[in-house]
Lab assay of single mutants.
Amino acid sequence: MSRESDVEAQQSHGSSACSQPHGSVTQSQGSSSQSQGISSSSTSTMPNSSQSSHSSSGTLSSLETVSTQELYSIPEDQEPEDQEPEEPTPAPWARLWALQDGFANLECVNDNYWFGRDKSCEYCFDEPLLKRTDKYRTYSKKHFRIFREVGPKNSYIAYIEDHSGNGTFVNTELVGKGKRRPLNNNSEIALSLSRNKVFVFFDLTVDDQSVYPKALRDEYIMSKTLGSGACGEVKLAFERKTCKKVAIKIISKRKFAIGSAREADPALNVETEIEILKKLNHPCIIKIKNFFDAEDYYIVLELMEGGELFDKVVGNKRLKEATCKLYFYQMLLAVQYLHENGIIHRDLKPENVLLSSQEEDCLIKITDFGHSKILGETSLMRTLCGTPTYLAPEVLVSVGTAGYNRAVDCWSLGVILFICLSGYPPFSEHRTQVSLKDQITSGKYNFIPEVWAEVSEKALDLVKKLLVVDPKARFTTEEALRHPWLQDEDMKRKFQDLLSEENESTALPQVL
Rank of each mutant, 00 (worst) to 15 (best):
H22S: 08
Y220H: 01
E86G: 11
R180C: 15
T272N: 00
N48R: 09
S35T: 11
S155N: 13
P266R: 11
Q20K: 08
N105H: 12
S2P: 13
S33C: 15
E271A: 06
F201L: 11
N185D: 06
E239C: 00
E263Q: 04
K253E: 03
K153Y: 01
N184V: 08
K214E: 07
S5C: 12
R240G: 11
E188H: 06
L130G: 06
S67L: 04
C108P: 15
Q100L: 15
G37S: 10
P75I: 14
I160Y: 02
K214A: 12
L204M: 15
D134R: 10
R137P: 08
Y220R: 01
S2G: 12
A9W: 13
T168Q: 02
N154V: 02
T65A: 08
D77P: 09
N105F: 14
Q27R: 11
G167V: 08
S120M: 08
A247C: 15
I248H: 12
Q20V: 13
Y113N: 14
A230T: 14
S12M: 13
E84R: 05
S252G: 09
T138W: 05
S194V: 09
S252C: 04
L216V: 06
S56E: 08
S57H: 00
E86K: 07
G58L: 13
T168S: 12
L236V: 11
S41A: 10
W93H: 03
K153L: 06
N171A: 14
D265I: 14
G165C: 07
Q100E: 09
D208Y: 08
S42A: 12
K241V: 01
N185V: 12
A9K: 14
T89E: 04
R240I: 07
S41W: 10
H163E: 03
Q29G: 11
L216I: 15
N154W: 14
F125R: 00
S192N: 10
L236N: 06
Q36L: 14
S5D: 09
N105Y: 13
Y139H: 02
S32N: 07
N196I: 10
L216C: 05
N105S: 15
E271S: 12
A190N: 15
S210E: 05
V109H: 11
D6Q: 14
S24P: 07
C108Q: 01
K131W: 09
Y212D: 04
K177I: 10
Y72F: 11
L106S: 14
N112P: 04
R117F: 00
I258M: 05
T225M: 15
P128G: 09
S223L: 15
E271I: 08
S32R: 08
C231L: 12
E8Q: 14
A237T: 15
S15H: 05
E81P: 10
E161I: 15
R3D: 11
S41M: 07
P266A: 09
F199M: 14
